[in-house]
Nucleic acid binder design. Sequence first.
DNA 1: CTGTTAGCGCATTCAC
DNA 2: GTGAATGCGCTAACAG
Lengths: 333, 333
Amino acid sequence: MGHGIEDVARAAGVSTATVSRALRGLPHVTDATRERVRAVAAELGYVATPSARSLATGRTRTIGLLSPWVSHWFFANVIEGAERALREQDHDALLYTFDVFELGPRRRVETHVLRGRVDGVLVVGLPLEDAEVADLDALGRPLVFVGAGPTDRCTVRIDEVAVAHLAVRHLLELGHRRIAYVSGHPDDVSPWSAAVLRTHGWREAMTEAGLRTDLQVNGNFDMPGGRAATHELLDRHPDVTAVFASSDEMAMGVVVAARERGLRIPQDLSVIGVDGHELGEVVGLTSVAQDVLAQGREAARLVLRVIAGEPVPVRVTPPVRLVVRSSTGPAPA
Amino acid sequence: MGHGIEDVARAAGVSTATVSRALRGLPHVTDATRERVRAVAAELGYVATPSARSLATGRTRTIGLLSPWVSHWFFANVIEGAERALREQDHDALLYTFDVFELGPRRRVETHVLRGRVDGVLVVGLPLEDAEVADLDALGRPLVFVGAGPTDRCTVRIDEVAVAHLAVRHLLELGHRRIAYVSGHPDDVSPWSAAVLRTHGWREAMTEAGLRTDLQVNGNFDMPGGRAATHELLDRHPDVTAVFASSDEMAMGVVVAARERGLRIPQDLSVIGVDGHELGEVVGLTSVAQDVLAQGREAARLVLRVIAGEPVPVRVTPPVRLVVRSSTGPAPA
DNA sequence: CTGTTAGCGCATTCAC
DNA sequence: GTGAATGCGCTAACAG
């Protein structure tokens, strides 16, 4: 068990330097020597102590995952995808959640906890202030964004504006004119957050169609939020015939609220979401779907490539596709 | 930026040992000295390098989270709860997923990747072979289980048997007799997995009621699995009037399948799940609910207490409650 | 209360 | 191709 490199060296009849080289696949070691060292190491169950290795090399083989939540669909999937991809390349995933959407004054994201612990950072759908991004840069480690990121930084995310256009167009083609929008969070701090961009896209699409853009409510990114938002919306504007929700989870809330008000879907109210949530099928939710697991994987591979000194694209735009189910239908006459 | 303890020592006019003591709140330091050191450290933005600290102390202030998935509701919530609790006590969460439920031969959980990286381990709903548990023990770090764990190990989990009884009793009281069970995974390796215990509870409850226990199908722990299982079930046994699914995600699959077969819920088929998934409300799913976030929190605090040398209970059994909605109703006549 | 010293376990020059 | 020596940055005994 508690064997060190010196034990291996002694048992193999070589120096610790040779053990180090042999085990890490470095050149300048005879095949015979390498094999012998490997055999001894395996027998002793030797594994280099990570902290010692880190101290000596300055690298940790660990990537920090920064996210507001784990329990929301999008985030859980990005994290899972990233962790799998990292493990494939012998890296660890260190998880940090910062619930910046919590009620009350926004608490600053404490980036200092990452210092010295990671070789790179993945920011997962986390709206960051410029100062916070600067703090992360001060770590001196590569930064990759998923789901939302500054325009000039390496970011993996779908074309949020296009998503909104796709959803609105679908509703327009069904004859809807009174189209409401359930956004995620109202006062995001970063102009590049998904919430802000998607809202922008919605406004744009509506304006292009000559429609009003004041039918917007905040759904807080979750099902209960979407439900409350819908009640609030329909109290004020009972003539709305379609709702575009910025996530499937909120769209499900719209469905719940509609049922509570005795509205039939889609006869009285059409609902479309974003994500392609597996459970959307349960209520026949129409959605603009994306492959989130793949985005996590992709982003993880990007950080590793940056660390390896390889060039990476500044922006990866995964495809989306409209999945039409039964929650959207022709506008009532 | 890149300041070391020596820089702080020099700037504060003390030795590195004093800096170390002062910053960590150890005794034998004058308040005045402590304050001065703190001020200097803050100004220089000094943070002790984790790897150096780990190498010297043998502790990492990191807890390993082992889980089959992140994207499933139960696991996402446990992980989120644990991470939050750990961060509150200045610990990090290192995430490891091992998809032991993957198709094909079960791959052994590679515990060696944890060696030297963690001070403790949280096993989240992961069915482990005895040998794998032994491997984890060999890390020489405390082990706490959540959602499933060997009877003699510190485990946070609901009373699975009681859960099954609760669900079955609810259906019995509604007059159901042909009650089917959608389990998670068929061939779990550990006798203490949630799947095995819950199945046991179901058998027990059914037997007590004098009912047959052969109406069991495998739902693979997710919605599509629950759906496929239901079709398979109803093809063979069209007279089933109620289904008890081992998770809400699978229960949703039952709902989808029922709709696909033109069955009304609950008039033709009653469905009950386990978890209290937020989205269950969208389809009016009856469920045996548990507070999973709290379980993650609790488990995290337990590992930290074991590390601190405090005594901990060998078993924590969080409460569950039956949430009756519209997916269960009287058995058809 | 504070400073000096010796490691923690490994990677990495530089010699050979 | 291999070994000896040095240092990564910090903590922990031990002196004082």
